[in-house]
Amino acid sequence: MFQTDARQGGAVTDVRPFQIRGRFLTAVSLQPAGGLPDAAFWDALDEKLRQTPHFFENAPLVLDMGKAPEIASNADFRAILRELRQRRLSAFGVFNATDEQVAAAEAAGLIRISLGRDAPLPSRDRRSPAGRDPKRLLPPDNLVIERPVRSGQTVMADRGDLIVIGPVSSGAELIAAGNIHVYGRLRGRAMAGVHGDQNARIFCHDLDAELLAIAGLYRTSDNIGDALRHCSVMVRLEGESLHVEPVGGTDADTARSKR
């Protein structure tokens, strides 16, 4: 199943305001049979959703009208859409539809889709719809560094967590797709969740960082404040702000007295 997608270029550095690109995406197709879906139909669908709760959640969905010529009015489509949305299924188009159905569906906010070819969902992909992304198929690759990370060095864990056992000097950079742990003093920069993982966190034994960032949101040393300097901290994203809090039972005073 495919669709073209015009994506707004979000980068500030982009000269053009947008980019247009062809994008392929996998969508789930739902083929109702017979007349307007009734309670039994929705019960059966609920049962199916229960079996694989995460598979269908917010999955792009198209309606295959090939076996339901009776569904033709705008009200029918609106009713179906309402039910689907309640089940967190996002229907966006119809195919195999008659002209009459297309007109009614378009009035309900669906688009007409013409298909290249049809294929059943391969059974091995049933558990992970995103499994087609090759990056997702690779296991995480965590990186453990057991010596000081020095000024001018960059250490990157592109597919996992980065664990540093030793100090990280001012002018050094830690970059990780996942979490960053520093068992030592962190004086340099730490950037976690660089591929956009907002659940990534930074843990460090002794905070004295120049910059902390998670999923692109950052704070420099000026904005981190002195209260937690030289403390064991955890940094995480809370909504749209970076949250630095003590962790590991060390309060600010004991951490300071360690110095």
Partner: peptide, 13 residues
């Protein structure tokens, strides 16, 4: 000190 730190990094790589 910072430059020395940088050099230590180079020595180890």
């Amino acid at each position: 000190v910072r430059d020395s730190d940088r050099v230590l990094g180079l020595l180890n790589s």
